[in-house]
Simulated assay, not measured.
Amino acid sequence: MSDTVERPETGLFWKALLLPAALIALWAAADAAGWSNRDLFVSPLQVVQSAIAGFADGSLSGATAATLLRALAGWIIGAGAGLLVGTLIGISGLARGLFNPTINSLRQIALFAWIPLLSAWFGNGETMKITLIALGAFFPMALGAQAGCQNVPEGWREVGKVLELSRRDTLRSIILPAAMPSIVAGAELSLNVAWLGTFGAEYLIGTGYINGMGDGLGAYLAAAREYARMDQVLLGVLFLGLIGVTLDRLVIGFSRKAIPWHRH
Rank of each mutant, 00 (worst) to 15 (best):
F138K: 14
A22N: 13
S59I: 03
S61D: 06
K129I: 04
P20G: 10
M128K: 03
A66L: 02
A145S: 13
G125I: 00
W114C: 07
Q46E: 00
F99H: 14
A73N: 13
A30G: 15
R38T: 07
I76F: 14
I77Y: 09
A120H: 14
A56V: 06
A71M: 08
A25G: 15
I77D: 04
N104Q: 13
D57M: 00
S105L: 11
W114E: 02
G58N: 06
G78R: 03
A113W: 02
T87M: 03
L18F: 13
L18K: 13
A79Q: 10
A142C: 09
I109T: 12
S119F: 04
D57A: 02
L17F: 11
G93N: 13
A28Q: 11
I115C: 09
G62S: 05
S50Q: 07
L83W: 05
A29H: 10
F122W: 05
S50F: 00
D57I: 00
T87I: 01
F41T: 07
L60R: 07
D31L: 00
A134T: 05
S92N: 10
F112R: 12
R107F: 02
A73P: 15
V85E: 04
G123F: 03
L135F: 13
A73Y: 08
A32W: 09
L19M: 11
A51Y: 06
A29C: 10
L23E: 05
L135P: 14
L18S: 15
T64F: 04
A51D: 04
N100Q: 15
L23W: 08
L143S: 14
S36H: 10
L83F: 10
P116S: 01
S50C: 04
G86T: 03
G144I: 00
W27D: 02
L94M: 12
A30V: 04
A71I: 01
L117S: 11
A65V: 08
I115L: 09
I103F: 14
A56Q: 15
A110K: 13
T131W: 10
I89Y: 09
A30R: 11
A22E: 07
L72M: 13
A142T: 07
W114L: 04
L118I: 02
V48S: 09
W35F: 09
G78D: 05
Q46P: 14
F122L: 06
L135M: 15
P44S: 01
L40P: 00
D39N: 10
T127I: 09
T67A: 03
W75V: 05
I77M: 08
R96Q: 14
L111A: 13
G97F: 03
R107S: 01
N37H: 10
S105W: 09
R70H: 02
N104S: 14
T67C: 03
V42W: 03
G90N: 05
T127P: 15
L68V: 12
A29R: 10
A66M: 02
L94G: 15
S119N: 15
W114I: 05
T67L: 01
G148Y: 01
A95W: 08
L83I: 02
S61L: 01
A137Y: 11
T127E: 14
R70I: 02
N37I: 00
A145I: 00
L135S: 15
A30I: 00
T64Y: 03
